[in-house]
C-alpha cells in the first residue's frame, strides 16, 4: 500500500517567528491523524500549509493524485490545487459559517461541489443532496432552508455533507467539534467515525481536545512551538506519553 500523503520537512515562518518547522509524516488510506497542541503551537498553520491554503517556506507535500500519482501539492499551479480541493480533498472549518454559504439553501450548499465538477442534471444533484442530508441526519424537509435557520450542530453536519458529497479521499478538519455542546459533539464524532469507515477516508484533524482525538484519530502528533515533539498511535501517545510536554498535556486534562 502506498501513502496517500507524504509530508516532508514542511516549514513556515511568520517573519522571524516559527509557524511550524520541519514537519514530516506519512498518511495512509483510511487513517485518521490527530494533531494536538495548545493555542499557538502551529497546528492550524500546519493544516493550512498542507491544504495549500498558506504558502510554505520549505518542504514538500506529496499527494497521491487519482490521475497522475504522487505530486507535490505545493508545486502545483493554483487551478490544479483548486481542482484537487474540490475533488480529492475536503476542508471542514471550525466555524460552519466559514465553510458554508449562509445565503444558499442546504441543498444548494451540498450541490455546489457537484456542480463545480460539472454535474448539470438538477434532478440528480437534488437526489445526491437529499441522500447526503439523510446521511448526516438532517431531515429531507429542510433541504430548501438556509443554514441560518439551523442549529450549530446541524450547520456543522451540513458542512460535512457539503464537503464529502464528491467522495474526497482526504479531509482536513480544523477543530470540527469546537464550539459545539458536548452532547452535539458526541453525535458528530459518531457520524465522522462512521463516514471515515464507510468511505475509507483519510483525515487530518486539528484539535486541542484530547478526548476528541482519542475517539476519532488512529494516530496522533503533538505540537509545541511549531515543532512535532511526539507522535505515534493515539492511545499509546495519550497513555504512555514520552515527551515532557505531552505528559503535561495529558495530566492537565480535567476529569469528569
Amino acid at each position: 500500500m502506498t501513502a496517500l500523503l507524504r509530508v516532508e520537512n514542511v516549514t513556515k515562518h511568520y517573519g522571524t517567528r516559527i509557524g511550524c518547522a520541519e514537519v514530516s509524516f506519512e498518511l495512509y488510506p483510511g487513517e485518521v491523524m490527530g494533531i494536538v497542541g495548545e493555542s499557538g503551537s502551529g497546528k492550524t498553520t500546519l493544516l493550512n500549509c498542507l491544504a495549500g491554503q498558506l504558502p510554505c517556506d520549505a518542504g514538500r507535500v506529496m499527494f497521491d493524485t487519482k490521475t497522475s500519482g504522487l505530486r507535490d501539492v505545493l508545486a502545483m499551479s493554483a487551478p490544479e490545487r483548486r481542482m484537487l480541493a474540490r475533488t480529492d480533498w475536503a476542508f471542514v472549518q471550525q466555524h460552519p459559517r466559514d465553510g458554508l454559504r449562509m445565503n444558499v439553501s442546504a441543498g444548494g450548499n451540498v450541490g455546489e461541489r457537484l456542480m463545480a465538477v460539472g454535474a448539470r442534471h438538477y434532478g440528480e444533484i437534488r437526489q445526491a443532496a437529499t441522500d447526503w442530508l439523510a446521511r448526516v441526519e438532517i431531515e429531507a424537509g429542510r433541504i430548501d432552508d438556509r443554514p441560518t435557520t439551523f442549529s450549530g450542530g446541524m450547520q456543522q453536519r451540513l458542512q460535512i455533507a457539503r464537503n464529502l458529497v464528491t467522495g474526497p479521499r482526504l479531509v482536513f478538519m480544523d477543530e470540527p467539534t469546537g464550539g459545539l455542546d458536548v452532547s452535539v459533539q458526541a453525535r458528530l464524532l459518531d457520524l465522522l467515525r462512521g463516514l471515515v469507515r464507510e468511505m475509507g477516508l483519510s483525515a487530518i484533524v486539528v484539535t486541542h481536545d484530547l478526548a476528541v482525538v482519542r475517539l476519532l484519530a488512529d494516530r496522533l502528533m503533538v505540537m509545541k512551538d511549531g515543532h512535532v515533539v511526539e507522535s505515534g498511535l493515539t492511545d499509546q501517545v495519550l497513555d504512555d506519553p514520552q515527551h515532557g510536554y505531552t505528559q503535561l498535556l495529558v495530566s492537565s486534562v480535567l476529569q469528569v
Binding site: 493554483a78 487551478p79 483548486r82 474540490r86 454559504r101 444558499v104 439553501s105 441543498g107 444548494g108 450541490g111 455546489e112 461541489r113 457537484l114 456542480m115 463545480a116 465538477v117 448539470r120 438538477y122 444533484i125 437534488r126 433541504i143 430548501d144
Partner: peptide, 19 residues
Amino acid sequence: HSLEDYGLMHVKLYEDISR
C-alpha cells in the same frame, strides 16, 4: 474567474429551481 471555478453560478440556478 481566473480558475474557471464556476460551480457557484449553477448554485444560483439550482436555488431558482428549488424555490
